[in-house]
Amino acid sequence: MRIVVAIGGNALLRRGERADAATQIRNVAAVTRDLAGLAVWYELLIVHGNGPQVGLLAEESERDPTLERGYPLDTLVAETQGMIGYWLAQGLGRHLPGTLVAALITQVVVDGDDPAFARPTKPVGPYYTDEEARALTGWTLRQERYGWRRVVPSPRPLEVVELPVITRLLDGGCVVVAGGGGGVPVLADRSGVEAVVDKDLVAALLAEEIKADLLVILTDVPYVIDGYGTGHERPIRTATPAELDPADFAAGSMRPKVEGACRFAERTGRPAAIGALSELEDVVAGTAGTRIRA
């Protein structure tokens, strides 16, 4: 049985934590222990987020006085793929002696005319206070529950360039880490663009292409919530794609998770699940989280 598991960047860096490497390495140790338990029984492809990490590196790069300009987002996505992929591979290797683990720098083709380039919605980096936000120029900022946050374009993924390599590695018995941060966004000619692709949509695309039996999207809430923030909240335990409208959920947050899960279930006839990282085994088993079936 083949499973794709998508974990958020907040699995490594939780809200309120300092972005120290030691903190993230400690967090990833717990994540890889649970992922390794799955890898004993299933062929496993792991997709990870990078929102906190890529935002931090972008801020550092923009403020570096020795640079003429900050590093472009596509380059920073590649940088975080290497960093987080290394941490995940290192942790999985400790729990799975004798099992090959491969972390790939992954490119994802997007359309240069995607309307998302004109409407930034993808949050990256830390939360800023009102005072800090006023000092930031040249960025698009959005006010959220915990403060202001930078938002960047998030075009739709069309193709995963390294798909043949990923497939061969899985067929050969490797645990694969790919599509990190949604992949490095490139155009058809492989030139990079200033954007961050949503990792949940890329996970759904990969799950479809590698013929996965299950797509699991992990977050920090136990269920998809109907009416979130309205005072009439209701956990959704099971649903079909026809019963869920991604537009009913927050852009850059739950919306791409619902959209990716529904797309996979609808296009393949196989189930998808959305649930809490802390309940990974139960989400895979179908006893926790939201299950979406065609």
Rank of each mutant, 00 (worst) to 15 (best):
T23K: 03
T23H: 03
T23Q: 01
I25F: 02
R26A: 15
V28S: 08
V28F: 01
A29H: 11
A29R: 14
A30T: 11
A30C: 05
A30E: 13
V31R: 02
V31I: 15
V31S: 01
T32V: 11
R33L: 12
R33V: 04
R33S: 12
D34A: 14
D34K: 11
D34S: 14
D34M: 06
D34F: 00
L35D: 01
L35I: 07
A36D: 10
A36K: 07
A36W: 06
G37F: 02
G37N: 15
G37L: 14
L38R: 06
L38S: 04
A39P: 03
V40H: 15
W41I: 02
Y42L: 03
L44A: 05
L45R: 07
I46F: 03
V47W: 03
V47M: 09
H48S: 10
H48Q: 14
G49N: 02
N50M: 05
N50F: 07
N50T: 09
G51W: 01
G51F: 08
G51M: 09
P52I: 06
P52C: 10
Q53G: 05
L56V: 07
L57V: 12
L57Y: 06
A58D: 06
A58P: 00
A58Q: 15
E59S: 09
E60S: 08
S61Y: 09
S61F: 08
R63H: 12
R63I: 00
D64Y: 03
D64L: 08
P65I: 12
T66M: 07
T66L: 13
